[in-house]
Structure formats: C-alpha cells, structure tokens
C-alpha cells in the first residue's frame, strides 16, 4: 500500500505542474490587467501603471515570466500578491485554516447525517417515513446554497439571535476570552455556515447511501447472514453497510472539490474569511500570483481528497489491496 501511495504522490507532482502551467497561461490570456486603474476615477496615469507593471515584472515577455514563476514555486515561493502587497504564502496562511475547518465541519455534518438517514431509510423501504425523508433529502439537495444560507441567517441570526450571522469569530470579544471561550466562540460562528454546506450535501449523501445499501441488502451474502440467524442490526451494520461504503467513499472523494466550490457562496453569505472569497476577489482584481497559487493549493486539496478516498477503499474492500 505504501508503494501505491508513493506512486500517487509522484503523480500528484505532475498534476501540480499541469495545473500551474494551465492556470498561468489562462489567466494571462484573460482580458484585463492587474494594474489598470478604476475606470470610475479620473486619476488615470499611464506612467504609473507602467511603473507598477515594471515593479512586478509584468513588462517582461510571457515566457520569461513563466520561467521565473516556475522557479519561484519550485522553491515554495508564490510571489507577492498584487492586490494585497504581501507574500502570497502569508495570504494563504490567513485563510486556508478557515477553509479547512469549514470543510471538515461540513463533511462531518454531510456524511454523518446523510449516512444515518440513508441507512434508516433503507431499512424501512416503502414506508411513510422513507417517503418523507426522500422528499426532504431531494428538496435539500436541490436548494441553492446561498438561499439556504440566507434563510438560516434570517432565522437564527436576525430573528431569533441565537447564532452570529457572519465571520469566524466575534472581533469585539474574541481576544479578551480565555482559550475555551475562544473555542466556543469559533464553534458558534461555525455552526451556520457548516450546517448550510453540510445539510445540502447530506441530502445527496442520504440518497446515495439509501440506494447503495438497498442494492447490497438484496445480495446473496446478506440472505446467508440472515439464514445464519444473525440479528437484523448486525446484518445491516456489520455486513451490508461495509459493502455499501464503496460508492460513499467515491462520493467523499468527489465532495472535497465540490465543497471548495460551494464554499465560495457560503463564504460570501456568512462573510467567512476563507479561500473561496480570496479566489473570487483575486480573479476580479487579476491578482495573478494569488490565482495561480490558489489553483495549486486547490489541486493539492483535491489530490489529497482522492488519495484519502483511495486509502479508504483499501480498508473497506480487501479486493483492492490484492489487486495491487
């Protein structure tokens, strides 16, 4: 297994190179310039724009910029952000932890809720509860994430005032709180955005889990297990559930990039200081170093997600181990 993981890591380096190259040229081909002044202001000095371009090396031909860029990222240096005037790594350092925390919380809500509901439904196939939960999961799955987020904000933030509406912390009190207090403050701020992302994902996960488990429950080995006199709970949770996990693990591998893209809207609705907002801002301001750096980091997270899924496959299904 170790050899397989090492091979995947080598492949991921190639993926990184392709992503870095494609992003570099795509963003340079896109219309617009990072230093074009606002067309809404009259102070429009071409000399200053030219000087700013010189300061950041944008006056050089694209291939020279590309070589310099590859040299930089090979040493772990993503350059200086055009719009924030500081190293891109510092920019990432500030936002990536928030994105990871949100993604982990959302994945937990997504899979714990979704799998529980899916298993519950599949053991009561055709009942009223099954129909009701199917309807709810379908509605959740098709609800626009920003609308769902806004509704949660209006209900729990503005009307009931149970939970904060925005941010990852309360800037008024956070720094005067003790460590447990700071942790509690972070949890309170995490609940609504994580619930928004997680519950919408749970709608899909529940439907996947239900159909996967129903398929497995119809197989011969389940009949054998029942014939052996095992309790139904043991049949479902020990024998059938494990065999239905393969499709859920695939879904897990795919959900990480989906969470990152979905987080853009959630981060906007909840003013969450994460990668999604950073990337949208960077794209609109043509902040080349941040865009290319973010693409590499996003690709890394996707590769990590797929690698995790692969490892989980090997645990869940012994056949994948012997196939190596």
């Amino acid at each position: 297994m170790t050899r397989a993981i090492v091979r995947r890591l080598y492949q991921s380096v190639l993926v990184m190179f392709v992503v870095a190259t494609a992003t570099f040229f795509l963003i340079h081909l896109a219309p617009g310039d990072p230093f074009t002044p606002s067309i809404e202001s009259a102070n429009f000095s071409q000399e200053i724009v030219a000087q700013q371009r010189r300061n950041f090396g944008l006056d050089q031909p694209a291939h020279i910029q590309y070589v310099r860029y590859l040299q930089q990222i090979a040493t772990g240096n993503f350059g200086i952000s055009f719009s924030q005037h500081r190293p891109v790594l510092d920019v990432f350092y500030d936002v990536i932890p928030n994105t990871i925390v949100l993604a982990i919380a959302a994945i937990l809500i997504d899979f714990v809720t979704g799998m529980t509901v899916g298993v519950f439904q599949s053991t009561r196939k055709g009942s009223r509860v099954d129909s009701l939960l199917s309807a709810i999961s379908l509605v959740l799955y098709s609800t626009p994430v920003f609308w769902f987020g806004l509704m949660l904000v209006l209900l729990f933030g503005v009307t009931l005032r149970w939970l904060p509406t925005a941010g990852a912390i309360d800037p008024v009190v956070y720094h005067s709180l003790s460590l447990p207090g700071q942790l509690w403050d972070r949890i309170r701020h995490l609940i609504l955005p994580a619930a928004t992302l997680g519950l919408i994902g749970a709608g899909g996960t529940a439907r996947f889990q239900r159909s996967a488990l129903l398929e497995v429950l119809a197989e011969d080995f389940v009949r054998t297990a029942r014939a052996k006199g095992l309790r139904e709970r043991t049949v479902v949770t020990v024998h059938a559930l494990r065999n239905s996990l393969l499709s859920i693990i695939t879904l897990f591998g795919l959900s990480l990039p989906a969470l990152l893209s979905g987080a853009v809207l959630v981060e906007t609705v909840f003013s969450w200081p994460g990668m999604g907002r950073l990337i949208t801002d960077a794209v609109s301001s043509r902040d080349y170093p941040v865009i290319t750096g973010a693409a590499i980091v996003s690709a890394l997270l996707v590769v990590a997600g797929n690698l995790t899924a692969d490892i989980l496959y090997r645990f869940a299904d012994p056949r994948t181990r012997t196939a190596q």
């Binding site: 806004l150 933030g157 925005a166 309360d170 800037p171 906007t268 609705v269 003013s271």
Partner: peptide
C-alpha cells in the same frame, strides 16, 4: 475607544449584521 471594521463584501450579509445588532 475602539473602532472595528468587519470585512463584509456582501450587502445582504452586512444588512443582516446591523439588523441582528452585531
């Protein structure tokens, strides 16, 4: 004594914050 600028790019989110008293 203190002024805290809270970065809120979305107007709806900003509106929710002032309405909620945050």
């Amino acid at each position: 004594a203190r002024v805290i600028f809270r970065v809120t790019r979305d107007t709806e989110s900003a509106l929710a914050q002032v309405l909620a008293g945050e």
